[in-house]
């Protein structure tokens, strides 16, 4: 066991715990921000300023009874939430979140702040994202309830439709960065143009960023694209029949997917851990700030926009977003050919 290996194992555990707690924090932030947007107070009783509310929620969920419809498929019904949560956690494994560090001189070799450095990281994220569909489809089907089934089918159709635009938005960045490795892509974005404008891909791929964010919101099933769980028509969509911890796992998966989506957006478009004022070793502070900003945007969108209609969503995805993404990729490729990478 070399110190580097120990540090790496520690890092993996650290990321796992941080993802878990980020979900808890997001629940609190979401409720607080929603309350502020609607001129309410939000949770304030449990703990100072209601900070312990997520903890209380978790304890409540743990002590609830685990229900299963009689006609449900027992194996798949149990498997679905596990698949969802696993896919959500796995995707973050290839996301780098800081520059190489020696942990204040504790290590001889630098440690890369990334659980697994894969040279096809972007494709891995895309692959795991496409596996997330299964949790939802199976939850919908195995519950043997019409609301769940319709929710599951809608959600998977939505995810498959928006995956294309999502992938094409990623491809635009790949073409510019000339690499599939996320840490390479982040390092291409260091420095500034003309002395003040950071070299973020956001400024060369504005359309790509817009497509990525839109498709990302649809992929994570968030408002205004949250049809799978449209309360007014489908009760709670694919997790209608779930209760207790299996419900909590879907909940967890949704929030972790949001965090991963924001982290990937930060790495691809917002320069990752590069930013002014702070030394490279403290870059993770920049990273956290950027991720927090995107997450706030997510919550803000949810409580501002009304839900689309399902046919509008499909039309938007296939007839507007996908052609835009193709045009974006074509223009980007032509630009790279003309100006050089």
């Amino acid at each position: 066991m070399t110190p580097l290996l120990i540090a790496q194992i520690g890092l993996t555990l650290f990321v796992f715990v941080m993802l878990l707690s980020s979900a808890a924090v997001m629940v609190y932030v979401e409720r607080k921000v929603a309350a502020m947007l609607q001129q309410r107070l939000g949770p304030y009783l449990v703990g100072p300023k209601g900070l312990l509310q997520p903890l209380a929620d978790v304890i409540k969920l743990m002590f609830k009874e685990e229900l299963r419809p009689l006609a449900a498929d027992p194996l798949l019904f149990a498997l679905a939430p596990i698949l969802s949560a696993t896919a959500a956690f796995a995707a973050f494994a290839v996301v780098p979140f800081g520059a190489d560090t020696t942990l204040f001189g504790l290590l001889r070799e630098p440690l890369r702040l990334q659980v697994a450095d894969v040279n096809v990281a972007i494709l891995v994220i895309f692959a795991i994202a496409s596996m997330g569909v299964y949790g939802i489809v199976l939850a919908g089907w195995s519950s043997n309830s019409k609301y769940s089934l319709i929710g599951g089918l809608r959600s998977s159709a939505q995810m498959i439709s928006y995956e294309l635009s999502y992938g094409l938005a990623l491809a635009g960045v790949l073409v510019i960065a000339n690499s599939l490795s996320l840490s390479d892509i982040v390092n291409r974005q260091s420095g500034t143009w003309l002395g003040f404008l950071p070299r973020w891909f956001l400024f060369v791929q504005p359309l790509g960023f817009f497509i990525y964010m839109t498709a990302g919101i649809a992929e994570t099933n968030r408002a205004p694209f949250d049809f799978p769980e449209a309360e007014q028509e489908l009760v709670a969509g694919y997790h209608t029949e779930y209760s207790s911890m299996s419900f909590a796992m879907f909940f967890l998966a949704e929030y972790i997917n949001m965090v991963t989506m924001s982290a990937v957006a930060t790495d691809l478009f917002l320069g990752g851990w590069h930013g002014p004022f702070l030394p490279e070793s403290l870059g993770w502070i920049w990273f956290l700030l950027k991720v927090a900003a995107i997450l706030f945007f997510y919550v803000w969108m949810r409580w501002t926009l009304p839900r689309y209609r399902y046919d509008q969503l499909m039309r938007f995805g296939w007839k507007i977003l996908l052609p835009l993404a193709v045009v974006n990729l074509l223009v980007t490729a032509a630009g790279v050919l003309y100006f050089g990478a």
């Binding site: 895309f126 692959a127 496409s130 596996m131 569909v133 299964y134 489809v137 995956e163």
Partner: peptide, 25 residues
């Protein structure tokens, strides 16, 4: 062949099998 490995997941598991699952359902 990491590229083929990932493409295998994206294309087969992520697209073709979803299609099958859809039809079965």
């Amino acid at each position: 062949a990491p590229f083929v490995a990932v493409i295998q997941i994206i294309v087969y598991a992520g697209a073709i099998m979803v299609l099958f699952l859809f039809v079965v359902m």
